[in-house]
Amino acid sequence: MKQKPSRGKGGKSRIDKKESKWAYIKKNYVLYLFLLPAVLLVFIFNYIPMYGVLIAFQDFSVTKGIFGSDWVGLDHFRSFLTSPNFIRIFMNTIKLSVYGLIIGFPVPIILALMLNQVRRMNIKKNIQLVIYAPHFISTVVIVGMLFIFLSPAGPINALITQFTGNPVSFLSDPAYFRTIFITSGIWQGAGFSSIVYVAALSNADPQLHDAATLDGASLLQRIWHIDVQVIKPIMAVLFILAIGGIMGVGFEKAYLLQTDMNIPASEIIDTYVYKRGLLAGDWSFGAAVGLFNTVIGLILLVIANTVVKRLNGETLY
């Protein structure tokens, strides 16, 4: 006797679902051909080099190579976790990321909501040009500008000196490092990050605003109940991605802003990996610390995706 195929939700069998998927792929094979180069690029440049993480478990030697170096297991991970600098470096990374996320994540959303209320297109385009422009300035130039403006002889200290009589050591005092790092990052990236929200807000039905206005809803009520609801799915996805990248603070700016005086606050995992792994030539230890950083980021990504999915129903995967 022939067994009947198991039925899933909606009365469709599993076999029918598989057949419908293959039928969809055959029907839209051109789209998959367009996607193929991107998949190949990701596979070649992101997945194939992953074999290099093997050196994190070895006492890597350039002359012996990856497959000839001695295997040491988790020794480099233990060395990093038990080092006297671990807590300070780890907490510096977490603080910069968490403070930057809490302060910086809402800013592009607020900018997009404000831009959406500008009705004159010429004014709106000029505002967008101004707030998008910092994104295209290189990190080196941004840091150079910060050194000029915040130096003891800079314009900001000149103004402070007129009122207090003494300049402030912004660039050498560890207490100011996080503030400078986070605020400059928000200034540079918030405008460009708002593009995706501005694009999503264009899908909001104008009739909803008209109906809400007739019902007596205020501007803030219309923004909250219409505009925010339109961009909520995108907010959820970008928040999950931001949590996943919480360990990737940004090596370039942290390293360029780093001085001998502010190292207690500016030394993060990325700069530590660069110094130990590349400058000191301890390849295996640097790879182990980098792998530790990546694994923590992956765990945070999975946790954030699970939590947001349960609270909001939106998911990254």
Rank of each mutant, 00 (worst) to 15 (best):
L219V: 13
Q117A: 13
S169Y: 14
A158E: 09
H76G: 05
T271Y: 15
N116M: 14
D59S: 07
A304E: 05
G65E: 00
F177E: 09
L301N: 01
R310D: 04
I103A: 08
F136D: 14
A242D: 07
Y176L: 05
G191K: 06
G277R: 03
I66E: 01
L74C: 00
R310V: 01
L208P: 01
F292M: 11
W224E: 08
K27L: 08
F136H: 00
F163H: 10
T93P: 13
W224N: 06
R78N: 15
N126M: 15
A204D: 05
P206M: 00
F43P: 03
R88T: 08
D70R: 12
G290V: 08
G250R: 09
V39N: 12
L33M: 14
A254P: 02
F60A: 00
A254C: 06
A288L: 06
G191S: 08
K9E: 13
S69W: 02
H135S: 11
A56G: 02
D16P: 08
P49L: 03
Q162F: 08
Y132K: 09
V118M: 13
M114T: 12
R276E: 15
F292C: 03
Y317L: 15
L238G: 08
I103G: 04
H135Y: 13
K2G: 01
L54V: 06
T271K: 12
I127A: 10
K21P: 01
L54N: 04
R120P: 04
N157T: 06
F292Q: 06
R14M: 10
S266Y: 06
I131V: 14
L40K: 03
G290P: 05
L111A: 14
F77R: 10
F136E: 10
A153W: 11
Y255Q: 06
R222C: 07
Q188I: 09
T213E: 14
E19G: 09
T183E: 02
L96E: 11
H225V: 02
T93K: 13
I87Q: 06
I123V: 14
Y51A: 07
V237T: 11
A204E: 08
R178Y: 01
S169F: 07
T82Y: 15
F67Y: 08
F60G: 02
F177A: 12
V289H: 12
V249I: 14
F105M: 15
I268M: 12
L219Q: 15
D227I: 06
I110R: 07
L201E: 03
R119D: 05
L40F: 11
H209E: 10
Q258E: 13
S172Q: 14
M1N: 00
N122K: 14
G286S: 05
